[in-house]
Simulated assay, not measured.
Amino acid sequence: MATRDEMSRSFGAAAGVYESGRPDYPTEAVQWLLEPMREPGRALRVADVGAGTGKLTRVIAGLGDDVVAIDPDSEMLAALHAAVPGVPTFVGTAERMPLPDASLDAVVLGQAWHWVDAIRGSLEVGRVLRSGGMLGLIWNVRDERLPWVRRMSEIMHGSSAEQMLADGHPPVAPPFSTLDEQVWGWTRPMSRGALQDMARSRSYVITAAPEEKERIETELDLLFDEIGVVGGSTIELPYVTKAYRGQRP
């Protein structure tokens, strides 16, 4: 089995299926992350860390804010550049950002904080934020109250993010303390191909042995046959978006 570090840096090899299979972030959830920093007539300075293919970056840019994208994988940043032209990109991590001290209003991470060393990451985020700046963390998580969704998760193997969130709030360290939390429920129409891409975009599957990948695809195909996702049909995949924000003193 791949190490945690190998899994965290595996996504560039699957940038295409990540873009296809992973959902976008609800605009209202991203607005909530940034709302405490809003001032009339001023764009926020935001870094999207672990930006991947830019799913969170494009929402922030769409809100009219100035955003830079940071990711450890240059292949993911290349996909981001194609999807969100004009956004500055940097290779880096939450623990080491190539940005000046006190230069940002907010640092946000989508589907990424579970890969971060919370102590080192919190300290580095605190360095690049101005006084009063905001750390925002957000995840799209499948709603497993439906039996078929729960079965799909069992086939694909649970993720470290899902385990972390099941255990409670994501961990942070000084200069951050408590985190505010908000939750949104919604659904996304998914074809059979998009569902398979979503599975292929997960770090466990990307780094799995060939026989394990074959098992996952075969069992998912059987499940999709059972629930009637065939041909050009789609099914509504329920999601819960969990967002957390904490302010730098």
Rank of each mutant, 00 (worst) to 15 (best):
V149R: 02
R142Q: 08
R127A: 06
E214D: 11
S201R: 01
S20Y: 03
Q31H: 09
L33H: 08
W184R: 10
D105T: 10
R142V: 03
R127K: 11
R188A: 05
M97T: 03
T89E: 14
L80N: 08
G21A: 01
G12L: 05
G168D: 07
D73C: 02
E211Q: 14
G110V: 05
P189V: 05
I206M: 03
Y244L: 06
L222T: 09
P40N: 15
Y204N: 14
M1D: 13
P85Y: 09
G185W: 06
G228K: 08
P26M: 08
T27M: 02
I60Y: 00
Q182S: 13
E217M: 09
G193Q: 12
T241F: 09
V141I: 15
R58C: 07
L44K: 14
H114L: 13
Q111N: 13
M198S: 02
R145A: 10
A209G: 11
F224L: 14
G158Q: 07
A173G: 02
G246R: 03
D117M: 07
G121W: 03
E217N: 03
P26I: 08
M190T: 01
T207D: 03
A78P: 04
R22S: 00
A79T: 01
G121T: 05
R4D: 14
S159C: 05
D105E: 11
G12M: 08
R151G: 04
G121C: 05
L165V: 10
A82W: 02
A79S: 04
R188F: 04
V229R: 00
S159Q: 09
I227N: 00
S131F: 05
V59H: 12
